[in-house]
Design a protein around this nucleic acid. Structure first.
Ligand SMILES: [Mn+2]
Ligand SMILES: [Mn+2]
Ligand SMILES: [Zn+2]
Ligand SMILES: [Zn+2]
Lengths: 138, 138
DNA sequence: AATAAAGATGCGAATCCCTCGCAAGTAGTG
DNA sequence: CACTACTTGCGAGGGATTCGCATCTTTATT
């Protein structure tokens, strides 16, 4: 018989902590492990940070969650189904803007054609200077 | 009178450690602070890791050195004059391939035109799967 | 419903990587 | 040579992530 839960379907046990971590990632958009923990603690105060780390890793292994690198430091997590945009990170003000992933389509195609390289444009941020920080007047 | 040394020219004192750190970055291509320290220790065994970190930062401040993010962890350093390529990092085998920076030219242009965003395509790696790891046969 | 085995959790300790504080040493200046 | 500012080595400090392990839970089986 077919399974009936997105976690069990992927061979994972269903624990309250696990469900809460996944729900938190989905609600938060971009989130660091620390932010996920904070969110989860709103309903389950006792959750341990290492449990959050372990579940993020587990959920990533089964494809429900992905991580990206938006800054010089640690990773941030996304629900897998939401990772449909580029991250434009400004090195001056630190803002994280979004751009449609299609903006990179021809770049991705040419890397594939010319180098045989399959690009995941969302894994690392696109780094630079945002319009506000570049424009001298404002 | 004009100055005569690339470090003094930029207002920096000339110390053996500083020169060695810069030389190591130039010889190594991509290097982590730890790797730079190792290299420098070949001729100056007593150098301290924090001295390496401090000098990398100082050299970066005056534009002789730059850092990039090639992996999930810390930064790697380049001589500024060498940073003329994209880094294609394979998530499967970990290889770091190079591609000419022109491969991103139209992508950079469209981000500027459409979003006013000035992109530094070398600061973060381009992440994906290399030809060897993608091609099933080999 | 009771049992057993595998897997998950909480907790504290341990790592890793990088930054600081400070006293001693050194480069640049005249 | 003497002075001052900058650097260095070293040890301590921090933040983030990972581990080890004893104690629960979940799930599959009686
Ligand atoms: Mn950076
Ligand atoms: Mn990553
Ligand atoms: Zn900005
Ligand atoms: Zn590869």
């Amino acid at each position: 018989m077919a399974e009936q839960h997105e976690l069990r379907d992927r061979g994972l046990r269903l624990t309250p902590q696990r469900e809460l971590v996944l729900a938190a990632v989905r609600e938060l958009g971009h989130a660091t492990p620390e932010e996920v923990a904070e969110k989860v603690r709103q309903s389950h105060p006792g959750i341990n940070l290492s449990t959050v780390y372990r579940n993020l890793e587990t959920l990533e292994n089964v494809g429900l969650v992905l991580h990206t690198h938006l800054g010089h430091g640690g990773a941030t997590y996304h629900a897998a189904e939401e990772l449909t945009h580029l991250h434009l990170v400004c090195g001056v003000c630190g803002s994280v803007g979004d751009a449609p992933i299609e903006a990179a389509a021809s770049f991705v195609t040419s890397l594939a054609d010319d180098f045989g390289f399959r690009t995941d444009v969302s894994h690392f941020a696109i780094y630079g200077t945002c319009a506000d920080c570049f424009d001298p007047n404002l």
